[in-house]
Design a protein around this nucleic acid. Structure first.
Lengths: 119, 119
DNA sequence: CTTCCATATGAATATCTGATCATATAAATT
DNA sequence: AATTTATATGATCAGATATTCATATGGAAG
C-alpha cells in the first residue's frame, strides 16, 4: 500500500498504523469538518455570531457593536452566508442578519464552556 | 461613548446596539474562544487528534497514518501541545502522544455530527 | 564518548486570510 | 430620473500560517 519508504518514516509500527488508518474518517470529510471549525476560528466572525445570538441586527449595527468598518463586517458576513451559518432578510435598504439555526448557537456555547473549563 | 462618527457608521440603532453591546462577552475572552476553534480549523491537526482518539501513537506512526513528513507532524504537535490538547510520554527514543482530555474528543465529535447533519 | 535514530526546531518560502480602500449595487426618497 | 444611503464586492496589501529543508537535541546502545 505504501510506496514511500523513501525517507524519514523508519520506525513505523505496521500493525498499529494499519489499525488506526482503517479507523480514520475520509480525508475529504475531515477536511470539511476542519473547514467548519475554521469559520469559528476568527474572532470577528465569532463576535458577529455571538451578537446575532442576542438579536437580529443590520450590518450597520453589527459594525457599531463590534466597532469595525462596515466593509469588514460585510466581507465576513459573506463568509458566514457561504457556510450557511447566517441568513438575512431585507427591510428597505437594510439587511437584517440572523443565525441560520440552533447548531450555530450550540457550537458557540460548547466552545465557550470548554474555554471556561479548561483554563 | 463613541468618538467616531467620522465615517461609515451612519444608520446605527442606538438602543439595539447598546443592548447587544451590554450582552457581549469580553473581547479578550471571545478572542480566546476563537483561538481555540482555530486549532481545530486545520485538517492536519484535526487528523492528528482524530487518530489519537483511536489510540496513542508515536510521531513516526502519526506521520505514517497521515502520510506526511515527520517534521510537519512534529510542528503541528507543538501547536497542539501549546494549547494543551495533547500530551506525550517518552518511551526510549520515542514520544507517544495522546489526547489531553475528554474535551478534545467531544469537541471533535460534536463538529463531526454537525457537519454530517448540516449538509 | 561515539554513533544511531526518533523527535524537535529554526529559517525560508509559499499560500492563505482579513482589513482597507475605492467603487458598485440596490432600495427609498425627493 | 436623480440623489441618498445601506450594503456588497473587487483589488490590494500586510500579517499569519503550514510545509519543507537543514540541522539540532537527546536518549539508547554499542
Amino acid at each position: 500500500m505504501e510506496e514511500k519508504d523513501t525517507c524519514d518514516v523508519i520506525c513505523v509500527h505496521e500493525d498499529e498504523v494499519k489499525d488506526v488508518k482503517s479507523k480514520m474518517l475520509e480525508d475529504e470529510f475531515l477536511f470539511e469538518v476542519s473547514d467548519n471549525f475554521k469559520v469559528f476560528g476568527d474572532s470577528t466572525r465569532l463576535k458577529i455570531m455571538y451578537a446575532l445570538s442576542q438579536r437580529d441586527l443590520c450590518v450597520c449595527d453589527l459594525a457599531a457593536v463590534l466597532d469595525m468598518s462596515q466593509s469588514a463586517i460585510s466581507h465576513q458576513l459573506r463568509v458566514l452566508r457561504s457556510k450557511n451559518l447566517v441568513k438575512f432578510r431585507r427591510k428597505g435598504k437594510m439587511a437584517y442578519y440572523y443565525l441560520a439555526d440552533e447548531h450555530v448557537v450550540s457550537m458557540i456555547e460548547l466552545c465557550v464552556e470548554h474555554t471556561k473549563e479548561r483554563y
